[in-house]
Amino acid sequence: MNIAFLYEHPTWSNQLIQCFRDNGLNITLINIAEHTYDSGQLKVDYDLVNQ
């Protein structure tokens, strides 16, 4: 299962991200404040549909 974690907050996010790592969860991290994306691409690799 692919999971992406969308985050922005400088304090809350770090602890939660570390907790994911400590528990062996493979999470794609997306810092929304620095995130760019192709608006015309209609498929993303962290799609959880049908997983």
Partner: peptide
């Protein structure tokens, strides 16, 4: 303003059928 960037991205994810 990051709230609006987030809103657009979440709308876009919905549009692309990402859960």
């Amino acid at each position: 303003s990051v709230a609006f960037h987030t809103q657009h991205f979440l709308n876009w994810l919905t549009f692309t059928n990402v859960k």
